[in-house]
Amino acid sequence: MARAATVRHLLKEVPFFVTKEMKKILLTFLAVTMLLTLAVGIVGCSPQPRLRVATTTSLYDTGLWSYLEPMFEEQYGVELDIICAGTGIALEYGRRGDVDVITIHSRSREEQFVAEGYGVERVPFAYNYFLIVGPADDPAGIQGMTPEDAFQTLMETQSGKLVSRGDDSGTHGKERAIWAAAGYDYETVTASGNWYIEAGRGMGPTLLMANEEQAYTLTDMGTFLSYTGKLELVPIVEEGDILLNVYSVIATNPQMHTEANFEMASNLINFLTSEEIQKIIGAYGVEQYGMQLFTPGAGVEPTG
C-alpha cells in the first residue's frame, strides 16, 4: 500500500516533462537534424560526373590504377572513383549496380557474370603470370616443378607452409584451379593441417604474412614485384600454362545505370584498350622493377 502511494505520488510529480513544450523542443531538434543532413547531402554531392570502378586488389596495389586515373579523368572530364576490392565483392558491387565498371581476373566467374546479364561484355586488356613464391631455402624442394606437382608435393610431405588468400578472390580461384588440376578436392586440402594457412586478406597482406611465416604463396607477378624490398621471398615456381592471369574490364548492369554512366563506362573500356594506353600499361613499372608488370592484352587473349 505504502509503495503504491509512493508511486502515485511520483507519478503526480513527474509528468512535468511530458508537456507540449517538450514535444515542441523534440520536433525542433528533429527538424534541425533533418535540415543538417540535407545540407550535408547537398555539399557531399559534387556536380561533376562520377564513374565508379571496382577493381581487384592487384591492379590497385601495384599502383597501376592510380597511374592511369588522372589520364582518364583529364581526357573525359569525369571524376573516377576507384574502389579496391577482391574479385568476389567487386562482382557483388557490380551485381547490385553500385559500380559502373569492374576490372577483375577470374575468367569463369566473369563469363558467368556476363551470362547472368549483370555484365555487358568481358573485355580482356592485360595479362601477366602467377607464380609461387617462397623462402629462398625452399624447404619442400619444389623449385622447378610444375605448379600442379609443387602443390602435390606440399600436400603429401607438408614440409613447408602455404598461405592461401582464402578470400574468394581471383587469385584464390586460381589456387583452387591448381588444386583441382593436381587432383585434389579443395575441402581436403583446407582440412589437412596447420601447414595450410587461410589469410582471408588481399594480395599484399598475404605476401607480408607469407614472409613472416617463411611460407609459400601463390601471387600475381605485378603485386610481387611492387613489394620488392619488403619481402625476403623469392620466386620458386614460374613455369606452367595454368599460371596465366588475364585481367578484363566489364561494364555492369546497364539497366541499373543512367545512359551517361553507361556511355562513360564504354569510354573507360575504349580507353583501356586503346593503343596508347596499352603501350603505357606495358611500360608501367619497367623502369622501377626492371621487368614488365603487365603485358598489354587487348583483343588477344593468350591461352597459356
Partner: peptide, 22 residues
Amino acid sequence: VTSTLLASLICLPLASLIHFNR
C-alpha cells in the same frame, strides 16, 4: 564532427524523453 553533431542533436532530446518519462 558532422556525425557526432547530428547524433548529439538527436540524442539530447531523445535521452531526455526516455529519462524523464515512466
